[in-house]
Design a protein around this nucleic acid. Sequence first.
DNA 1: GAAGAATGGGATAGCGCTTTCCCGTTTCGG
DNA 2: CCGAAACGGGAAAGCGCTATCCCATTCTTC
Lengths: 363, 363
Amino acid sequence: MPPRRMGSDVRRTRPRASSSGNPTLADVAARAGVSLATASRVLNDSTRKVGPEHRERVVRAARELNYRTDLSAQAIARGSAPVLALLVSSIDDPYFSAIAEGVAESAHAHGVIVTIAITARDSERELTSVRTIRGQRPRAILISGSRISGNPHTGELLEELRAFTAGGGRTLFLSQSVGGLGAVRPANSTGAQDLGIAVSRLGYRRAAVVTGAAHLESVAERTEGLRRGLATGGGKIALVEGDSFDRSGGYRATRRLIESGRIEEVDVLCAGNDFMAVGAMTALRDSGIQPGRDVAITGFNDIETAADVTPQLTTVRFPLAEIGRRGADLALDPSTPLTEDICVPGEVILRASCPPRTPHRTA
Amino acid sequence: MPPRRMGSDVRRTRPRASSSGNPTLADVAARAGVSLATASRVLNDSTRKVGPEHRERVVRAARELNYRTDLSAQAIARGSAPVLALLVSSIDDPYFSAIAEGVAESAHAHGVIVTIAITARDSERELTSVRTIRGQRPRAILISGSRISGNPHTGELLEELRAFTAGGGRTLFLSQSVGGLGAVRPANSTGAQDLGIAVSRLGYRRAAVVTGAAHLESVAERTEGLRRGLATGGGKIALVEGDSFDRSGGYRATRRLIESGRIEEVDVLCAGNDFMAVGAMTALRDSGIQPGRDVAITGFNDIETAADVTPQLTTVRFPLAEIGRRGADLALDPSTPLTEDICVPGEVILRASCPPRTPHRTA
DNA sequence: GAAGAATGGGATAGCGCTTTCCCGTTTCGG
DNA sequence: CCGAAACGGGAAAGCGCTATCCCATTCTTC
């Protein structure tokens, strides 16, 4: 005996109409006088043909009701959601926002929704974010600028990603690679090497590297690349000073170099990124040293500011939006495996902060 | 007669287990040896009590399976999704990314997911984005920097928003208000007025306004505020030059001022935003006019770059992230009506680009 | 013209959850 | 002690869709 609802049993001829709230497909079908199936077929231009008469009626009904398919319902019925999740440490950072822009661009082209989560460089928050994201059953998750390796939550995080992949999801890292998982990232190493070569050509021989925390992969890559590049001209990295990876870090590190007198030993100061370079410039200037003339400066990334500071900053430009776009393209194309690192080359941008070196150092 | 599936009818004692893919609540329930209802109750700490024995079993099963609730299913079952949609014209713009950061912050605190859509200042794309967003049935949609008014799609767009609101959604504008709908925005008018007053106090009397398209509400507000502020010191806006709202626009507009000689008529150049100010500086410098000394410069917004350019830029700072945060807070609190404009005050930041005016203009 | 193949439409079984009912046990107050 | 209330658990009815079956017609093709 089939179970029964307690209420009457009479109606249920046509799909119920939802009196308030958003119109449902049932409302559309009812108004068009067709079945749910037909309405669905029309609205999703399925392969099944629908008579022009019915088709027209459904389209009109949908328009009149201003119907919009409930994506959650669609996702659950279809078994997959047209969603791409993006995890960034901060969106209020030109580096990541450029990547995000590219990601959004690609997602839009693929007709996919982007959900974004920011981790504020907090590994615990990163973990909870990934968990929440996993609940969305997105097609892919893109992680940019994480602290996944070497933190108290690394294990759980990787386990979470593993589970995600096991459930059919795709994971891709942007701007850094993490243990064996695929990544699209700037060719830090090559870019730094090219910068080193360029700087060498300009006549510089002894560099101070002012950079971020040594455990960051990108820091190591850039430093090493720079070393190789300088070596081509017989130059070298004379000293390395580390601090936080931002403007104030650049300021402080440079300050220390100046106060200890070590700044005298170098002819070019290579900062780990443009923010640090800008901080370094200010530190130099505060001590009466003129950046670009007394000491050359280089940055990394070519943030928009780089061309606005005085002197304009020599740096290495990476097509960040392009990295985001390619990453998303890749992640959304189920046919490609996501296992290898793809390095996107950068371009050395020579500007006034690093002029051809005159043989006599004006100290 | 109840309809039957064609297959056997035997099983269906315990919830089915999904062999592959993501574990479902049924899997958890099965593993814990309880019903779906109990499993759900435990996992959502519902008001209904569950015995400690069962509770423990469910929690363990969930952990072992690395179960993560399917948010789409939850959304459809509950009738609402824990989602906040953000619509911005671009995310790769410090102005919007700062707002977005605040929004994400608030959303995180509320345990809500953020989906983001970028419109690239294209009204058609804006329309399709709102349509897609509506399909997500988000709790609220936040619109920042749109072209909603005065474009070929305005009507459809407003209709779409109306339908969204009718369906129980909440709409809020950030950084600009649109026809009667609520907004959280910078106090452009007051901020500009304060800037005008400050500039007046420093001794400036004749200003050139270099700004974006006149139809933008913010442009009008800022210009008008500036006028009032200058008037307090007997100063005035001597001329207005418009161009695109970015760096190159600032450059071009200023260029025209210089070439026509009109630049001679003013002692301060007030740009519509910091980007334009930076462009203006470059244009001046290219013509041998030294910004800050020969002509003072002011910007608007205090983007990070503002403190890095030379001379450092005098501007008006708005707590953009705060605007985003408050907007999201408001939008996510169903008890507040979303009808009025909330203006967040700015703060004049005086820097070297606008030094106290010396009586003799060094031309 | 009759058998077989398209054709186009409807009924309905899920999808993975939540939540309302409903029911067997305990616990209590009187 | 007995009936009432409280407690804890399970069955199953949806939520708004999609897609699979199934069926009544209309075309084909010898």
